[in-house]
């Protein structure tokens, strides 16, 4: 870990301005991912702006019947919220499928969206990594890639977005609300929030330097049955090999997004439309153009089988 300076921001505008003014500054909230990465010098910010005192810790009803989740609501509180459990079950299920109780107590909603990949080569500073050091190459390509991406990846990077919560938010068509140093606000659909790597895998999201997440909004409830099927090598405290977030209506229509397969929660709306035709039809469309490695090709049939499990349960 390199030495850094630290300030605790009093208001969102000042926080955004402080980070915007310094290209190697970062926001910190729960720090459950950032601090680990700083210890091994994968992240080397020179300045941290702590946003924990900014409020943003409420879950409120919106005028159009949805919910507005403050950026600093902890994963634990979000998953436990009675409205979320009743109307957005997929989100609660996704959150409690991730990390551990201790981490969920500390991790924030915004931080969860911004967690970085778990590619082992990203974690080892002796290895080439375009995400960590742009232009250095990608040691994961041709290496141990069992956990890595099968679609939406590029010649520069085959990492995945590792989270669970965002996969559920993608199915729910959530949006990310931000403010920047000039006070400008915008709402970014979850579909557009995480980037495909292309030739800039160092940029995980569309956020600009100093753009601060203030909330995540959920549209009004979808009804239907909610599922989060997470497949992993052990029963808990592991990243998904493949996960499936789904909301299935009584008539067999619905929505589905996949985690653990791509640089972002992977949802193809055209594939949603095929849900009444079964899992194989959906995944054939959703994973069209997939480029798996030998190590992770199993993720494609696994995605189909995991979705088939969800659809069988939806019918039961």
């Amino acid at each position: 870990m390199r030495a850094f300076t630290y300030e605790r921001a009093r208001d969102a505008g000042a926080a955004a301005r402080a980070v915007a003014a310094n290209p190697s500054a970062k926001f910190i909230a729960g720090g459950t991912n950032l601090l680990d990465l700083m210890k091994i010098e994968v992240e080397v910010p020179t300045h941290l702006v702590d946003v924990q005192d900014l409020g943003f810790d409420k879950i409120e009803a919106t005028r159009d019947g949805g919910l507005r989740i403050g950026a600093l609501v902890t994963n634990t509180n979000l998953a436990a919220d009675a409205r979320v459990r009743r109307d957005y079950g997929v989100l609660t299920r996704a959150i409690v499928a991730g990390a551990s109780g201790q981490l969920r107590n500390k991790a924030s909603t915004a931080g969860n969206l911004l967690q970085r990949t778990r590619c082992p080569y990203f974690y080892d500073t002796n290895m080439a990594c375009n995400k960590r050091r742009p232009g250095s190459g990608c040691a994961a390509i041709g290496g141990y890639s069992r956990q890595l991406g099968v679609i939406g990846v590029s010649d520069a990077c085959i990492a995945t977005f590792p989270g669970d919560m965002a996969v559920a938010m993608r199915v729910l068509d959530a949006a990310v609300e931000t403010v920047d140093g000039t006070g400008a606000r915008r709402s970014i659909p979850m579909a557009d929030f995480h980037r495909l790597w292309g030739d800039r895998p160092d940029q995980d999201t569309v956020l600009k330097q100093g753009e601060l997440i203030t909330a995540v909004t959920l549209p009004k409830p979808l009804g239907g049955k909610h599922f989060y099927e997470k497949v992993r090598d052990r029963a808990s405290y592991a990243y998904a090999l493949v996960s499936v977030a789904a909301v299935i209506q009584p008539d067999g229509t619905g929505r589905v997004a996949f985690g653990g397969v791509a640089p972002k929660p992977w949802r193809v709306e055209a594939a949603d439309a095929l849900l009444p035709r079964g899992a194989a039809a959906v995944t054939a469309r959703a994973f069209q153009g997939a480029t798996p490695t030998k190590d992770n090709a199993f993720k494609l049939p696994l995605a189909t089988r995991a979705l088939a499990s969800v659809l069988a349960e939806a019918k039961a």
Partner: peptide, 16 residues
Amino acid sequence: FVNHDLASYEVPVHAD
């Protein structure tokens, strides 16, 4: 050995 931490070298957790 690539998976040189306890996130990537998995050992059983209580739930297992």
